[in-house]
Design a protein around this nucleic acid. Structure first.
Length: 198
DNA sequence: AGCACGATTAACT
DNA sequence: GTTAATCGTGCTC
């Protein structure tokens, strides 16, 4: 795949639930020291606006949330639990704060580089969590507010085989233990079951 | 300045 | 299934 397959900003400038759904099956591409690392996105979650009490934007504009008020197609990368980086993509129009969390990918390229960081676990556990995939692809705070739609981007999304609705399941977002209803139970998590999965 | 807590992970019972 | 680890963020005093 070449640069022509890279998603344009218009892809992200749409309702967040639609973006979260359509990101399933797309390729997350990370250029690292001239090497191409990539994986197929299989799990996402939507975080939508200041009213969504699970979204960091419930606090309004702060140094951390500022990027979510920016233009669609930026990366929102934040640190949590004193240990883990989590990767999101900003969605919707500027000043409409929302993002999609990338929760899991299936590695497709650069496996030896991924293994260098995640090889202490079996391959099936290399990128099956939002913190794990950031570790695998060396994604951290240096990429916060990074524009995925710029030329020669070191982090971007490319088109992939579409995932049919019959292979998509939804459910409540993960890890919202103390978030009040109805936000806690909103079915804003999207999972893809790929053909070669069982 | 101090505090409670988190969009998690890995190890342990 | 349960829990420690670990520190930036946002809120209160």
């Amino acid at each position: 795949m070449g640069a022509s397959d890279r998603l344009e900003r218009s892809f992200f400038n749409r309702p967040t639930l639609l973006v979260a759904r359509e990101l399933l099956g797309k390729h997350l591409v990370r250029m690292l020291d001239g090497q191409r690392l990539s994986g197929i996105i299989t799990e996402t979650e939507a975080y939508i606006g200041e009213e969504d009490l699970a979204c960091h934007c419930k606090a309004g504009r702060t140094p951390r949330t500022q990027v979510m008020y920016g233009q669609p197609g930026l990366a929102y990368v934040y640190f949590t639990y004193g240990k883990h980086w989590l990767l999101n993509f900003v969605t919707e129009a500027e000043n409409s704060p929302a993002a999609v969390l990338i929760r899991a990918i299936i590695p497709t390229a650069g496996l030896e580089h991924i293994a260098a960081r995640r090889g202490h676990q079996p391959p099936a556990r290399w990128t099956d969590g939002p913190g794990k995939l950031c570790q695998a692809l060396e994604i951290d705070g240096a990429l916060n507010a990074y524009d995925l739609c710029q030329p020669e981007a070191v982090l971007s999304i490319e088109n992939g085989a579409p995932i049919p609705d019959s292979s998509v399941t939804t459910g409540p977002r993960v890890g919202l233990n103390s978030v009040p209803e109805p936000w806690k139970s909103k079915p804003w998590r999207f999972l893809a079951r790929l053909p070669d999965n069982s």
